[in-house]
Design a binder for these strands. Structure first.
Length: 277
DNA sequence: CAATATACCTGGATGC
DNA sequence: TGCATCCAGGTATATT
């Protein structure tokens, strides 16, 4: 499900309920997500610990625990984190529950089970985080996300700019919905080989990325205040989308019908007037 | 090495 | 109503 904005809204929504709380008990469904639930590590290094801070890197949430351990959660395609009174009955596909001293419970619900849960024990957490972070792409809100760096990264890469934006090893947090929206806003055709883009194109892509991701987070912000019981479904589609899933509807700028195609196996939407080849 | 295909899952929409 | 088929916001791995 979630791309950078949804993960960020989840983080902001969870933060006031979790930070400073002790995780009293942990329960899991017994089903494996993308990887098996790390039961032993959860028992040893998460249960009984106080959650100090929740951070985000790419589409991963990092729960930093007192003592230096880290609980890592990825939401995959359908994962949602919500917070509920502990006595609320379990929902189908609830796979991980963290009971807090406050009497509330953080629940990870993931029907497709493409999500992932990992634990970095205090002894190795620093090293594991450095390795992890090195594998992930540039954060769109960081200074390094610049037309100069993108031009450099695109050297010798002939793949479509849309696949380039969605490659998490290059750029963090941009998935299919926002790749479509960003390229539309930047007026760049999604099939353009990354290596052929000019600095001015990358400039518009940088600006459009920050603008659209910021607006998406702001749109999800309305859910943050009443995150409790929300089943953590933070405002997907709350942002007004221009092209994603809009095949046949008029382009907001020029009214030409939005086209649908497939790039890299993913649904692609564009306006051929505003994003000429 | 770069680029593409495939596998992992469930559920909703669509068509017969 | 039932059943088959296709499609979905992600990512690791295998294959070209």
């Amino acid at each position: 499900m979630p791309e950078l904005p949804e993960v960020e809204v989840t983080r902001l929504g969870l933060r006031p309920h979790l930070e400073g709380q002790r995780i009293r008990t942990i329960r899991w469904s017994g089903k494996k997500l993308r990887t098996p639930m790390p039961r032993k590590l959860l028992k040893e290094h998460v249960e009984g610990k106080v959650a100090m801070v929740i951070d985000r890197r790419a589409k991963y949430l990092l729960f930093r625990l007192q003592g230096g351990g880290v609980l890592v959660i990825h939401l995959g395609m359908t994962g949602k984190l919500g917070i509920f009174p502990a006595r609320t009955s379990l929902a189908k596909h609830d796979h991980l529950c963290l009971t807090l001293d406050s009497g509330m419970e953080v629940r990870l619900n993931d029907s497709r089970r493409f999500g992932a849960v990992a634990v970095w024990p205090p002894k190795t957490a620093q090293e594991q985080e450095i390795e992890f972070s090195a594998r992930e792409g540039i954060e769109p809100f960081s200074k390094t996300f610049s037309k100069e760096e993108l031009t450099r990264l695109a050297q010798k890469r002939t793949l479509a700019v849309k696949s380039f934006l969605m490659n998490g090893k290059l750029i963090a947090g941009i998935g299919n919905i926002y790749a479509n929206e960003i390229l539309y806003s930047a007026r760049v055709h999604p099939l353009t080989p990354a290596v052929t883009l000019k600095p001015s194109d990358w400039h518009r892509i940088v600006e459009a990325s920050r603008e659209i991701l910021t607006r998406a987070i702001a749109a999800g912000g309305s859910t943050i205040s009443d995150f409790i019981g929300s089943s953590g479904n933070p405002g997907y589609f709350q942002l007004q989308l221009s092209v994603y899933d809009k095949a046949g509807t008029p382009c907001p700028a020029c009214s030409r019908p939005i086209e649908k195609s497939v790039i890299g196996g993913r649904a692609t939407y564009l306006c051929l007037n505003c994003q000429p080849p």
